[in-house]
Amino acid sequence: MIVNEFVVSYLVLLGLSAGICLPAAGAGWAAARRGRGGPDPAQRERREKNTYLVITLLGLGFAIRLVMIPLWFLTLHSLIPAVPGAMCLAGVHLLDSPFSFAATTLKFIIPLAYLFWLTLNAVDRRIETEPFLRAKLLWVAPLALLLAGESFFDLHFLLRINPRIVSCCTSLFDLPRGGALEAVRSAGTLWTAGFYACLVGALLASVRRLRPGGGKGRLPTALLSLLALLFLILALQTVFSPLLLHAPYHQCVFCLWGNRLDIALASAAAIAGLWLSFVGAALPDLRPYPEAERWARKLSRFALLCAIAGPAWLSVRYLAERFFF
């Protein structure tokens, strides 16, 4: 184990986060099993108390998880001096691949899963009959599983790594030649074109859905948003990073975000916008519940704004680098 102040701090927060979120799963399961409690006010009160416990714990857990993302990257960055041969985060990841890559990937997936749950909760609380109560309480369990998995990968990485030489500074896509990775690495144009195509499609579908009297198009919006999100990550890795880092073969989204703050912020906006578009479209039909539907439409409008602003800035930077610098 390599010890420094970032590693110790991260381990402390990991313990706290797990200690908060995992019991939330237990509380959620217990509340879901209890059901609505029928007419008995005491049972109902117990169920409501448990539900508030779940909401409170998950809310705090989400906040802690969000700030643990930059701390994770700071921690990885602090390990670079201790790893001979590593010059960037990708090199540090090679110390404990694939656990390290799994841990980092989950850093992005878990907040998105949280966002989904929080959106479902916000919608449910706006409806008198709370139709999604059982669903949201049961969904805490998969969220907790993700968290437990991430905690395991984090611990595996932080507790087991030792300073050893890694081959050189490489990114995921620079490593072995041939095979699927090579195919992914060299299809940058496809990912970029796919991203813009899916983005435009998702935006048009969203706008159509949000028009007064609209409401159709949930499935295309959800699918296209998800695809656009996937293509965005691949495009950032294979096209944007070599271009904006001025390093033709350097495909590394970590280096891109670490060295270009505006790109990191634009990417965050794009990811948040696309994911919230997906979430908004994935929610059940809320037309019978006017208050909830109003809120969901506000959320979708906010998502639309982020999904336009983020990619717009990315496009400006791409075009500027490509044609003017």
Partner: peptide
Amino acid sequence: ARPTRGEVIIDRRRTSHLPEHF
């Protein structure tokens, strides 16, 4: 507070089934 049995209806809106925040 909630009744053990029965109902309070305010402007034709039954309150016994309403969640706490409502």
